[in-house]
Simulated assay, not measured.
Amino acid sequence: MSVDLSALGWDDGFAEAFGRFAVLGQRPARVSRVDRGVCTALAAGGPVRASVAGGLLARAAQDPGALPCAGDWLVVRDWPDGRLTAEAVLPRRTAIVRATAGEESFGQVLAANIDAVAVVEPIDPSPDPGRIERLLALAWESGAKPHLVLTKADLAADPEAIAAQMPGRASGVTVHAVSARTGLGLDGLHPLVARGRTLGLLGASGAGKSSLVNALAGAPVMQTRALRADGRGRHTTTYRALIPMPDGGAVLDTPGVRLVGMFDTVTGLDRAFADVTLLAQACRFDDCRHGDEPECAVRAAVEEGELSPRRYASWQKLQKEQKLAAVRRVRRESRERRRPARG
Results as ranks from 00 to 15, higher is better:
Ile114Phe: 01
Ala163Pro: 00
Trp73Ser: 10
Ala153Ser: 09
Trp140Glu: 06
Glu104Pro: 05
Ala58Asn: 01
Pro80Met: 00
Glu104Met: 03
Asp158His: 12
Trp79Gly: 04
Leu150Asp: 05
Leu56Ala: 10
Ala180Gly: 14
His176Arg: 06
Gly172Ser: 02
Ser179Ala: 10
Gln108Ile: 00
Val76Tyr: 13
Ala99Gly: 14
Asn113Lys: 04
Arg83Cys: 04
Ile114Gly: 05
Ala99Val: 08
Leu136Lys: 06
Lys145Ile: 13
Ala86Arg: 05
Ser142Thr: 03
Thr174Gly: 00
Arg59Cys: 14
Gly107Lys: 14
Ala180Arg: 12
Arg93Cys: 07
Ala153Val: 07
Val117Asp: 03
Asp128Ala: 13
Pro125Ala: 04
Thr85Pro: 00
Gly82Ala: 08
Gly183Thr: 03
Trp79Val: 05
Leu135Val: 00
Ile114His: 02
Arg93Lys: 10
Leu74Ala: 08
Asp154Val: 10
Ala53Leu: 12
Ala137Leu: 00
Gln108Lys: 14
Ala66Glu: 15
Ile162Trp: 04
Ile96Ser: 13
Ala177His: 07
Leu150Asn: 06
Arg98Trp: 03
Lys145Ser: 15
Gly183Met: 05
Asp124Arg: 14
Pro64Ile: 01
Ala116Lys: 05
Ala137His: 01
Ala101Ser: 15
Ala112Asp: 15
Arg92Ile: 10
Asp154Met: 08
Arg134Cys: 10
Glu121Val: 10
Ala58His: 05
Pro159Tyr: 11
Arg134Trp: 12
Val76Ile: 15
Ile162His: 03
Pro127Glu: 11
Gly54Trp: 09
Arg131Val: 10
Ala66Gln: 15
Ala58Glu: 03
Pro125Tyr: 06
Thr94Met: 04
Val97Ile: 15
Val76Trp: 13
Ile96Pro: 12
Val173Phe: 02
Ala116Val: 11
Ala153Gln: 06
Gln62Met: 00
Pro125Lys: 06
Pro167Ala: 01
Arg134Gly: 11
Val175Tyr: 12
Lys145Val: 15
Gly143Ala: 06
Pro167Glu: 04
Ala66Phe: 10
Thr100Asn: 14
Leu136Tyr: 12
Thr182Pro: 14
Ala163Lys: 02
Glu141Thr: 03
His147Val: 03
Pro80Gln: 01
Trp140Val: 02
Cys69His: 06
Leu110Lys: 08
Cys69Asn: 04
Leu138Lys: 14
Thr151Phe: 14
Ala61Gln: 09
Pro127Val: 09
Ser126Trp: 13
Trp79Arg: 13
Thr174Trp: 01
Cys69Gly: 08
Asp115Gly: 09
Arg92Gln: 11
Ser179Cys: 11
Ala163Ile: 01
Ile162Leu: 15
Ala164Trp: 01
Lys152Ile: 12
Pro146Gly: 06
Val75Trp: 07
Ile96Ala: 12
Leu136Pro: 11
Ala161Gly: 09
Ala70Lys: 02
Arg98Cys: 05
Ala156Tyr: 08
Asp78Ile: 00
Ala88Ile: 03
Gly102Asn: 15
Val117Phe: 02
Pro167Ile: 01
Gly54Glu: 09
Glu104Gly: 02
Ala86Gly: 05
Ala58Asp: 01
Thr182Met: 13
Arg134Tyr: 10
Val117Tyr: 02
Ile123Gly: 14
Ala116Trp: 08
Met166Cys: 02
